[in-house]
């Protein structure tokens, strides 16, 4: 299995993205910004299709759109979480724009039609080439480094923004740059599991990790570990059973992991 080049690329890109999603997702869940992350994942779709419609590289549109909207959300949101109504209305429109770009793209490339849209939405981890896999891995390493560098103040600002602000932590800038990083991670992850499904890696492993431990560093490592495990097991399953789309296999494993953790810890919670 490991001798297949497409499998090697998938493992390289998948592992990198899983570690990134686990680490970033931990803070997303901790800060209660799941809905914002959801919006960013949808923005990724529109960005990618805009780039395709304009004839640019898909990844350029992905990163430009998600990072831009992420920083914007962070700045507009100001104190507390951004208003979920504003997020909802805006991303519905951004998705509408995505459909428009899809129509333009389809009209121009009669043969390409809707395959591109499906790839962006649901990912194609087995279709990643050597160059793209290496690029994805390098970007992921850089982003993880950024998150770890701001992890301490970010943790402080997430748990108690008022005290953190009083102690001189630039809460607002930190929040905006964090959402920018979430955007970049969304762009990364959509190349692997697709814009619609990256949530399985961004929400499920951190939620499971936070159930297992209250200690931040251990939780962070656990979250990254669970995400990586989901990707590996998912890839092996998809390889063994070609009926299963790889994205579905990865998501099933991460969902099942969360379900098992939730059920086993539910009893323990009640006793304590």
């Amino acid at each position: 299995m490991l001798s297949q080049p497409f499998m090697q690329h998938a493992l390289l890109a998948g592992t990198a993205v899983a570690v990134l999603s686990g680490v970033v997702g931990y803070f997303v869940v901790l800060r209660g910004q799941v809905f914002a992350g959801d919006a960013l994942s949808h923005v990724a779709y529109s960005g990618a299709l805009a780039a395709l419609a304009a004839g640019l590289d898909l990844r350029f549109g992905l990163f430009a759109a998600t990072v831009g909207v992420g920083v914007l959300l962070g700045l507009l949101g100001g104190r507390g979480a951004a208003d979920d109504v504003v997020i909802g209305t805006t991303f519905a429109w951004v998705l509408g724009l995505g459909v428009l770009f899809l129509a333009i793209f389809t009209a121009r490339h009669a043969t390409g039609n809707s395959t591109a849209s499906v790839t962006v939405l649901f990912g194609s981890i087995f279709g990643i080439g050597a160059g793209a896999a290496t690029a994805a891995a390098l970007v992921a390493v850089a982003l993880v480094a950024v998150v770890l560098a701001m992890a301490r103040p970010l943790l402080f600002a997430s748990l108690d923004p008022a005290v953190a602000a009083a102690r001189g932590v630039p809460v607002r800038v930190l929040g905006a740059s964090f959402l920018g990083v979430v955007g970049a991670s969304a762009a990364e992850a959509s190349q692997v599991v697709g814009a619609l499904l990256l949530f399985g890696l961004l929400a499920a492993p951190p939620a499971a990790a936070q159930r297992l431990t209250d200690r931040p560093w251990r939780g962070l490592a656990l979250s990254a570990g669970l995400a990586t495990m989901s990707v590996w097991v998912g890839l092996v399953l998809a390889y063994a059973f070609p009926v299963l789309p790889p994205s579905f296999a990865i998501l099933s494993v991460s969902t099942a992991t969360y379900a098992v953790v939730a059920i086993t810890t539910a009893g323990r919670r009640r006793h304590s």
Binding site: V29, V34, G37, F122, L197, A204, P206, A207, S247, F248
Partner: peptide, 22 residues
Amino acid sequence: RAREQSAVIGTVQSFALASGLL
């Protein structure tokens, strides 16, 4: 906790979409 609940909703959502893909 509210923040965990939204994470669970997110998980339900992406799993549903993945099943759709299947």
